[in-house]
Amino acid sequence: MSTPLLEVENLRVSFPTHSGRVEVVKGLSFTLGRERLGIVGESGSGKSMTGRSILKLIRKPGEVTADKLRFEGIDILDQNEKQMRAIRGARISMVMQDPKFSLNPVMTVGEQIAEALVTHQKLGRKEVQQRILDMLTAVRINDPERVAKLYPHEVSGGMGQRIMIAMMLIPEPELLIADEPTSALDVSVQAQVLDIIDDLVTRKGMGLILISHDLALVSRYCDRILVMNAGRVVEECAARELDKAQHPYTRGLLAAMPVIDETRDELPVLDRTQWAGT
């Protein structure tokens, strides 16, 4: 096997607080080929921070260290800002968590997508326009010409999410990090958006890191799953073998998942005492 797409070893992210430095990611390790990796964990477990540190986008008082953080053999932590800019968007990009806050409120949707493209490729106006419309069509937005001229507050949450995906896929990166791309959406739209991502990712042979707190969702769309809790990986397994998971936290999450022919009156709540101290 050739070099993996992404190698992460002992990744740590910390922030200074009133009571000293606090680590929010504590020694994360994994490798990723051209496959679909899911990262699952409850809110605040450090999923987004992991995604951001791969792009070296943790802002100043925050600090990132790792024994190894390599993308296609490039040492991310060694790159300067200029070199990172050539990687961001063009080779690794990230669908941001909440489109309502993640789109610039005073730029039209079209302008924002165009920016993602022309930052990395010199193209003529006509061509840029055509690529935007194609991309919007690819994420199944009807009437892309009208939507391109709208401001973010004029589009719905689901559209915003799809616009976000279009924006991050248009420069054709090799690795896409999707940070809860569907958390703001209702279930029917959720599947639709994930299908779009899945389709585009498989077609272009990209790597995907899908971040979510929804274990069922992730197991459906990914090949491999990392379960995170409080900044640590507590379980790593193939999606197919999820039911064989060992760690009590994963078991707890699984048990809390409703199944098709539900017979229980009440879903169990996570019992945190079992793995406290891990």
């Binding site: 792009l55 986008l57 961001r88 941001m96 806050f101 993640s102 610039n104 930052t119 990395h120």
Partner: peptide, 15 residues
């Protein structure tokens, strides 16, 4: 400190 500024950085836009 807004999220959309991070989005711009994710796209690789110059500072």
């Amino acid at each position: 400190s807004q999220e959309f500024v991070t989005t711009a950085r994710v796209k690789g836009v110059p500072e």
